[in-house]
Amino acid sequence: MTAELELRDVVVSFNGFRATDGVSMSIEQGELRFLIGPNGAGKTTLIDVITGLTPVTEGDVLFRGESLVGVPSHKIVQKGIGRSFQTPTVFQALTVLDNLDLAASFKMSTLKLFRKRRGISAAVADTMEQIGLTDSAHRVAGALSHGQKQWLEIGMLLVQQPRMILLDEPVAGMSPQERAATGELLQRLAGDHTIVVIEHDMAFLRSYAEKVTVLHEGKILLEGTVDQVQGNPLVQEVYLGRARDARSGHVASTESGEAAQAPDAQEVLS
């Protein structure tokens, strides 16, 4: 059986600096996989490589047995891989409805795009309901709160019904309630979708992660369950060990809503 996603010795080097240094991993269909690691471990780079934003220097990326190397980003999305970014990037000048509708229309031919939207498609209406923005349908996205923008972005992902979803710190800056809702959503989506999440928040990880891959300096340090990862002395040394002192400060720093802007390292340690 071919894995949903397979990385083979992926090396990405920026002017000699190896952001990822021979990463091989395989993710099965329906998995909910968490990627963790200290700042600069190469987590975001991996997502960038999978989605075609950053070219691989060496190695191969296979999605359902098909290589993604050299495929432009928009075609990778068409194959069924969706992603989010660290900071929510919705289209500020468009309404919530238009943002979702545009996302939902991504398989339309250019000629069809020239037609005006008439009414709201069921998929868009459902998604709007799911992310709780039905009342804000006709507001421009630029006027939403940070959390709402994050939900809108997640909605734009879901409405495309991707096979695989890559999320880069989806709960950064969210309130505890929003975090819980996101976590539950992820668990609900796993199974039908394959999900890869980069997340620094250990509490979130403990609550929702099944399988965790730890990256360190561009290499895979360990792969296993949350308990295995937390109990591993190597991981504690490079990562969790440094976090122990700061753990008490966790609630304060993540709830303040400023985590998105905070430097990576501080989030890791929280």
């Binding site: 989605t51 934003l53 432009p72 980003s73 928009h74 999305v77 068409q78 969706g82 992603r83 970014f85 990037t89 289209f91 500020q92 000048a93 545009l102 996302a103 991504f106 398989k107 734009m156 495309q160």
Partner: peptide
Amino acid sequence: DGEDRVQFLGY
């Protein structure tokens, strides 16, 4: 407004 983002919408 977001040329890079548009690609990740599949356009």
